[in-house]
């Protein structure tokens, strides 16, 4: 198990942000970068990151399981996390969560049969002004979601 040169270069750039004896500070970015490359964090990926940063493997595993946006289980090609917290929820003209579930024929926490989508019930994303919000693959925030916009988005995600 190793990561591609590009990922390693990115991780090295993150390491450089911290004092020389504090490489572990880069573990969050390193796991993010590794997840980006591999799709999810298998245990050998976490192990690689831990060894790369010279930290205990279980400490890296603690990090990978503490923060919500890491996937330590394999998931669909696209991870859709819909915020279901109060400020978003009260602005739903229609229950977009239910809409998504029906449309994808899955429940929260599940992956579609074709392996394309995983739907997750999310917590506050610090973007309540754009409610309802949804985040795609950790990096792309979609605002003011309506059923129409959801249809559009799903069509566009290949």
């Amino acid at each position: 198990m190793t990561l591609c040169a590009e990922s390693l270069a990115k991780i090295d750039r993150e390491i450089a942000k911290y004092p020389a004896d504090q490489k572990q500070s880069a573990v969050m970015s390193a796991l993010r970068i590794a997840q980006q490359e591999k799709g999810w964090l298998a245990s050998d990926t976490i192990q690689f990151v831990a060894d790369y940063l010279g930290m205990p493997r279980i400490a890296a595993y603690e990090v990978a399981t503490f923060y919500n946006m890491y996937d330590t289980q394999q998931r669909g090609k696209h991870k859709l996390v819909i915020c279901t917290n109060l400020p978003c929820r009260v602005t739903w003209q229609q229950d977009v969560g239910e809409y998504l579930k029906k449309k994808l024929e899955i429940n929260y926490g599940e992956t579609t049969e074709d392996g394309k989508f995983t739907l997750i019930e999310g917590e506050c994303m610090g973007a309540c002004g754009d409610a309802p919000v949804m985040i795609v693959n950790n990096h792309r925030m979609c605002s003011f979601m309506t059923p129409e916009k959801i249809d559009q988005l799903l069509a566009e995600l290949e």
Binding site: P56, I58, A59, Y61, E62, T65, F66
Partner: peptide, 8 residues
Amino acid sequence: MELGQAAR
């Protein structure tokens, strides 16, 4: 460190 507290 062989044991840790995983998840939250």
